[in-house]
Design a protein around this nucleic acid. Structure first.
Lengths: 164, 164
DNA sequence: TATTGTTATACTCTATAACTATA
DNA sequence: TATAGTTATAGAGTATAACAATA
């Protein structure tokens, strides 16, 4: 799971899976998200805080929608926003049309922070892919996008697929 | 950071980074590790517990080495192993040669759990890459491995590079 | 003295359940 | 009644600092 790479090369048999491919993707994913964890940590932050600010870069959602964006329970969102607000990274504003609801906005400090993190993260990823040729980088991008897009499509289609 | 994809296509300029590539890798990584989180969760477990058991599949390290494998502080390892042990997934055995040290081993139950999780995870990854052609899957594997290997090499070289 | 590991403490992150205040 | 959000509570996971036992 962590270094599951001590596995003999295996022909991607028609029957089953290519274990090397699974391991390679897992390790790459750990590499990428560990980098993000480390960079966020350098700013006394975390992946989820960075994602929160990332969402708020171009949106001012209600707590509600924020939960859907981040896939978290409303109580988790409350705490998350609390901590970010305590650090001056976001603000809550009562909605004019529904006085139960709060609109969450990023502050200048929050924007500055997320942009620093994003820049460092980009730099790090570029370092990772630097050993690849330009052609291979383009290919990698294309393949990654294809997987992500297929999954998004799949979720869109599949949401209620087997139940109705 | 979460859905940073709302970005116009950008020629990978010589000056800077290819933002699309960065986003694609980030999203792919979230996809992969969210899948692992979800699958581990189905077994009332977590990524770090799965990684712990993964390490122990073919090793019986001291708490010490476990910390290095997982990149965690010794106090974190103590807690991690405590919780796994409480669930009957691992055991501690006093080392014969150094009575301060504990050897950590996986139990049958632990092995069974990690194998279930690994199998489900493989299945999921195979689903992700299913839309790709065999050629493209092979290519993706090769590129991912190349990045991971380059990073490992880099760390090996770089550990004390600028200080000595 | 140095090292191995635990414990005390503190904080983030997460969820469930109960609650308040609107709607 | 239903919805938006908070709060109380509980537990995992992480780190730092202080400690015990052994080397």
């Amino acid at each position: 799971m962590t270094s599951p790479s001590d596995t003999p090369p295996q022909a991607p048999s028609p029957t089953g899976g290519d274990r090397e491919l699974v391991d390679a993707l897992a390790q790459l994913s750990f590499l990428v998200l560990n980098a993000l964890t480390e960079i966020a940590g350098q700013h006394d932050s975390s992946i989820i805080q960075a994602r929160l600010l990332g969402v708020l870069r171009d949106r001012e959602p209600m707590m509600n929608e924020l939960g859907r964006h981040l896939g978290l329970d409303k109580s988790s969102i409350s705490g998350l926003v609390d901590r970010a607000q305590r650090r001056g990274l976001v603000t809550r504003t009562v909605s004019a049309i529904d006085r139960r609801a709060f609109q969450v906005s990023i502050t200048d400090a929050g924007r500055q922070l997320v942009e620093q993190i994003a820049a460092q993260f980009s730099e790090r990823i570029e370092t990772f892919v630097a050993p690849l040729s330009e052609t291979h980088r383009r290919l990698l991008k294309q393949l990654a996008l294809q997987i992500v897009a297929a999954d998004a499509h799949h979720r869109g289609i599949d949401l209620r697929a087997t139940s109705g």
